[in-house]
Design a protein around this nucleic acid. Structure first.
Lengths: 337, 337
DNA sequence: TTTAGTTCAGAAAACGTTTTCATAAACCGG
DNA sequence: CCGGTTTATGAAAACGTTTTCTGAACTAAA
């Protein structure tokens, strides 16, 4: 479709391409009112639109960043993405979004494709299983920030929830409301999933600090799909927990499904708290007390941090930004007397 | 960071750039085993990665499409986006995602920026208020498909829910379960929002077909935030509805909030059905009967259709693809005797 | 030996910008 | 009227590819 180029404009306006280029870049210093008019007119007349690709080639900058996420359907992702888009929009940047689907191979492929496409920076929700790839990026001092997860051996600016605090918050809130048999429910622990580990560790430590013992039986680490059954098994055993701490929204769903399939009353028989605010928290019965992540701030921060890297080729040591979780007090926990 | 170019490879391999280019494009026809080896070796040694921007400039194609959505946080958007990404991934294409936030000005700006960036096609969840922009695109025969909404005066391939059928489905399901005072709840009607209009029209027609009269009082058209109050007002009046049809997930939230704030029992006092499946439908009490959109298929179709346009510069008349809604029978409606 | 294909590979011209540098024209004070 | 500034513009070389064309070297047929 688009055919008209700068040369056409130049011809019509009776000036050289250089002059048109100057005009477009608003370098009006030494340009007569007259020429300016003629160029404006020519552009108008031809409906000229500069070709950004050509400009990119010359300038070695594309005003585009890449974002690779490991799960597009996750609420957290959506919300952080939203903030990233908004921040980029402000700066006239575009966002290419890629879904690694938690597959390291795909993630690797995407990193390379995006580099080939000359993106100016990368925000990654890392699978965690591509150490060499990440490391290569930092060696090349390529602008990069991690979100949600971080990767142990790799030093990169990272934006994360303060997972310890979140877990501690959960335990404290439950304990201070009189609950004493707290179980944690989470997907199986794996080393490369840092937040998961941290939440679990935070839980353990907070429990100990409170003088609670963490019964093996009260660590319910199983993939979400199997959760309802696993919980039923647990509740068939003695010393039932009277509170459940679900490590994220997905496990919360498992917990709620379990609750629904049994005749357990929340919060009378069982208190529930979880990390990740969910859209239905307010309309569920009982209203769900949750520990929200400040997703919007996190996305904003990640983008800002990426831009400081882009602008001033990385100065000091990479930093890890920990965001404070936010307790949303509702009614799935009630003072126990 | 990246410095090594085709010229470097050529030098090291002792061949010309042209030959390297041939190699990269796998045009091995007239290339000696020997040269091939040397080039491969040189590429390996230098860690060469082709610059896609340069290629794009020459080839006038970027292997990138743009997607402009009017609401990034909407579930439908997320899911369709997911499908789009997946389809593009298969074809080695990238997706630039832009959020117009239902602001026509932003949408227009984005269209132009994406064109300037030479994307190969555009999938738009249109605001509906940019007729000239859309029209310009179709005049230029630029590959374009609309999703979710369509735009009356503009002929473009569009992927939509069969909204009439969805509304009819709701009415029929309610009616066949013995409900006779059905109210529709929706945001205020506006002409540029086609699905909203269609759902409303579908509702009216289905009601008439069933011999129901649609009482003015049973058209609750108000912005979601005000819904709970508006519903309370309605329920203070006589001839209360015994069933509510919420036109989408957002209005459903309003309805549920209302329910929660009163002592109305679902489904005993009031049946609820809505368009858009929601993630908590299964764990809510009662489990929510919904009319789901086949979001994944819709995203897939949109992408496929875009690619037929990209490949064979649009042949016949644009088509509108209507996707059948899917009734998810749960328990927020129960046979009324 | 010449001729006519083959096989291979390089030179050079695009693609549409930006940017540097040169220089023409106009002005200006003495 | 003359050098020196200032003001305004253009020529041309990049940027890193792809692609077309040309031609060298080799082979096989005449």
């Amino acid at each position: 479709m688009k055919k008209v180029t700068m040369a056409d404009v130049a011809k019509l306006a009776n000036v050289s391409k250089s002059t048109v280029s100057q005009y477009l870049n608003k370098r009006y210093e030494y340009m007569s009112e007259e020429t300016r008019k003629r160029i404006a007119q020519a552009i108008e007349e031809l409906g000229y639109q500069p070709n950004v690709i050509a400009r990119s080639l010359k300038q070695k900058t594309t005003a585009t960043i890449g974002v690779i996420v490991f799960n597009m359907l996750h609420m957290l992702t959506t919300q952080v993405l939203h903030a990233i888009e908004e921040e980029c929009q402000k700066r006239g940047f575009h966002v290419i979004i890629c879904n690694s689907n938690d597959d390291p191979e795909k993630e690797k492929k995407y990193v390379n494709m995006l580099l080939a496409k000359q993106v100016d920076g990368l925000i990654v929700f890392p699978t965690g299983k591509n150490e060499e790839v990440y490391r290569h990026l930092v060696e090349e001092r390529f602008p990069l920030v991690f979100v949600d997860r971080m990767v142990p051996g790799v030093e990169v600016d990272s934006v994360l929830l303060d997972n310890f605090k979140a877990a501690e918050m959960a335990v404290d809130y439950l304990a201070s409301h009189g609950y004493d048999r707290i179980a944690i429910v989470l997907p199986p622990l794996v080393a490369y999933n840092v937040p998961r580990m941290e939440r679990f560790e935070g839980f353990r430590i907070a429990m100990e600090k409170r003088g609670f013992v963490v019964d093996e039986n009260n660590i319910i680490a199983v993939t979400p799909a199997l959760l309802p059954d696993e919980l039923k098994k647990r509740f068939a055993k003695p010393e039932r927990p009277n509170a459940l701490f679900a490590i994220n929204d997905l496990t919360l769903m498992g917990v709620l499904r379990f609750v629904k399939e049994t005749d357990i009353c929340v919060p009378e028989d069982l208190a529930i708290i979880n990390i990740d605010d969910v859209p239905f928290a307010d309309i569920y019965t009982p209203r769900l007390t949750t520990i929200a992540q400040p997703t919007f701030s996190m996305g904003k921060k990640a983008t800002e941090q990426l831009f400081v890297q882009i602008e001033q080729k990385r100065k000091g040591k990479p930093r890890v930004f920990r965001f404070s979780p936010i307790l949303k007090e509702r009614t799935s926990i009630r003072r126990k007397d």
